[in-house]
Simulated assay, not measured.
Amino acid sequence: MTNRTSGGAKPRITLTAIDHEKLTQLAIAATNTFPDVAAELADEVARARVLAKGRQLADAVRMGSEVLFQDEVTGKTTTVTLVYPPEADIAQGKISILTPIGTALIGLSVGQSINWTTRSGDVKRLTVQAVRDPADGSPQSA
C-alpha cells in the first residue's frame, strides 16, 4: 500500500522515543544557528506519532537509517544515510538531519512521499523506496 499525499499535505510520520527526544533537543539547540531548518524540524517532531520506548518500525526512517528515495520530478534515485550534524559528509552520502531534505526524510515509511523546499526555495517531491535499518542492516522496500 502506498501512502502518498497530494498537494502540500504532509504524510503521517513515526519516530522512536529516542529520536523524538534527541531531535526535540537538537531543534531547540539549533534555533539560533539554523532558525529555518530548526523550526521545520521542530514542526516535524511535533506532528510525529511517537512509539513507546524500545519500539521501532522496520520500514520507517530514523537516525542512522540508510534511505533510498526517488525524486518524483526527475525520476533519479539516491541513497543517503541520515545522521546528526557532526557526522555529516555529503561525499560519503551522509546527510544531516539539519538540512531540508534530512528533515523531510525523518519518520517517513517505505512508499510515502513528501514535498520539501530546498535552501534555494525550489519545491521538490520525493518518495521513499527502501529503508535499511541501522541496527541490523536489513533492507525494507516497497
Rank of each mutant, 00 (worst) to 15 (best):
I90P: 07
K124P: 07
I114E: 10
G111H: 03
V83P: 00
Q92W: 05
L98W: 00
P86L: 11
L82I: 15
I97C: 04
D89P: 00
D122Q: 14
Q112Y: 02
K124W: 11
P85W: 02
Q112F: 01
V123F: 11
S96K: 04
A104P: 10
W116N: 04
T99N: 02
R125N: 14
S120P: 10
L98Y: 01
I101S: 10
T103F: 02
G102H: 05
Q112I: 04
T81V: 14
T117W: 07
Q112C: 06
Q112V: 04
T117N: 05
I95A: 01
V83E: 01
D122P: 03
G107I: 01
T81I: 13
L98M: 08
A91N: 14
T118P: 06
A88E: 08
L108R: 02
I106N: 03
G93D: 05
E87F: 02
S120Y: 13
T99P: 02
R125Q: 15
L105D: 07
G93Q: 03
K124I: 05
E87Y: 06
V123L: 13
D89T: 08
R125F: 10
I101P: 01
T118N: 07
T118F: 08
T81R: 15
L105A: 11
K124N: 11
P86H: 12
G121S: 11
I97G: 00
S113M: 06
S109P: 07
V123D: 12
G93A: 04
G107D: 02
L108C: 08
I90K: 13
I90D: 15
S120N: 15
S96P: 09
R119K: 12
I101Y: 09
G102T: 09
V123C: 09
G93S: 05
I106V: 12
G93W: 03
T81A: 12
T99E: 01
D122C: 06
L82G: 03
Q112D: 08
P85N: 07
A104N: 10
N115F: 10
S120R: 15
G107H: 02
L98D: 00
V83Q: 04
L108Y: 01
